[in-house]
Amino acid sequence: MDVDNALSALNNPMRRRILEWLKDRSNFPPALPEHAGLEGVCVAYIQEKAKLSQSTISTYMGLLKRAGFVIAERHGQWTFYRRNEENIQTFLAAMQDELLKP
Rank of each mutant, 00 (worst) to 15 (best):
A50L: 06
R17C: 03
Y45M: 13
R74N: 11
Q54N: 12
H35K: 10
Q96A: 13
A9M: 05
K23Q: 12
V70R: 00
A36C: 02
G62Q: 06
K65C: 08
P29H: 08
S53I: 05
D24V: 02
G76R: 07
S53W: 04
K49T: 08
N84K: 05
T79M: 11
L99H: 11
R74V: 11
I71T: 11
L38W: 04
S53C: 06
T59M: 12
W21C: 06
K65P: 01
Q89S: 10
Y45I: 01
D24K: 04
R15E: 05
A50E: 03
A36K: 15
E73I: 06
G76P: 03
G40R: 02
D24A: 04
N84A: 10
A50N: 05
K65L: 05
G68Y: 06
A93Q: 13
F28V: 04
S8I: 05
M14L: 12
H35L: 12
W21K: 04
P102G: 14
S26P: 03
L100P: 01
E34I: 09
T90A: 11
R25G: 02
W78T: 09
D24L: 04
E85Q: 11
L100A: 10
H35C: 05
L38R: 06
H35A: 14
L92G: 07
L32D: 13
T90M: 07
R17S: 11
E39A: 14
A67Q: 00
F69C: 00
Q54V: 12
P30E: 12
G40I: 01
N11K: 06
E48S: 11
F91L: 10
L22T: 01
G68R: 01
E85A: 13
L32W: 10
W21R: 01
L19D: 03
E85N: 12
R17I: 06
L99M: 15
E34K: 13
S55C: 14
N84M: 07
R82T: 08
I88H: 04
L52K: 15
A50K: 02
L100G: 09
A94S: 13
L10F: 00
V41G: 01
F80Y: 09
G68L: 00
N5G: 07
T56V: 15
T56M: 13
N5E: 09
E86G: 09
G37K: 09
N12F: 02
Y81L: 08
L63Y: 07
L32E: 13
L38S: 06
T79Q: 11
Y60K: 02
E48R: 14
P102T: 08
M95S: 09
D2G: 10
I18V: 10
K51Q: 12
E98L: 12
G76A: 03
K23H: 09
S53Y: 09
M14F: 05
A6K: 02
Q47R: 15
F28T: 04
G37W: 03
F28A: 05
Y81I: 00
P33R: 03
Q96E: 15
